[in-house]
């Protein structure tokens, strides 16, 4: 039997950070998205977005494809299979926590 705090602490912090959660949610709904789109979506500065993407890439949740499009640098970001599984698991975990908060009785 886990304590309520243990259940909350079980949330994956790599995913649960708001910006990374937004990035993974967007990427799970499409095939690829580029850096510019993600920047508009999250409202993050370039540096912060790069930092979050690097962490997700290190965790094996996304893969980055840096290339040139019309002589301009363009970074395409794609969620990995592991990333898809992780975000689905995360959503399930959040839903379970939400449900358990409704049914709990002292």
């Amino acid at each position: 039997m886990t304590t309520p705090f243990e259940e909350l602490a079980g949330l994956d912090r790599l995913i649960h950070e708001p910006a990374r959660l937004a990035i993974l949610t967007a990427l799970a709904s499409c095939d690829t998205a580029d850096y510019l789109f993600l920047q508009h979506l999250t409202g993050l500065t370039g540096g912060n977005l790069s930092s979050h993407l690097s962490k997700l890439e290190e965790g094996g949740l996304v893969q980055l494809d840096k290339r040139f499009v019309e002589k301009k640098p363009n970074t395409q970001v794609q969620i990995t299979e592991e990333g898809k599984r992780a975000i689905l698991q995360h959503w399930k975990h959040l839903d379970d926590l939400h449900e358990s908060s409704k049914t709990w009785k002292p």
Binding site: A19, L21, T25, A26, S29, A33, F37, L41
Partner: peptide
Amino acid sequence: MKNLKEIRFIATNFY
């Protein structure tokens, strides 16, 4: 930060 449902909607229907 946008609502996560809204994020899914935009990413799915962007075009």
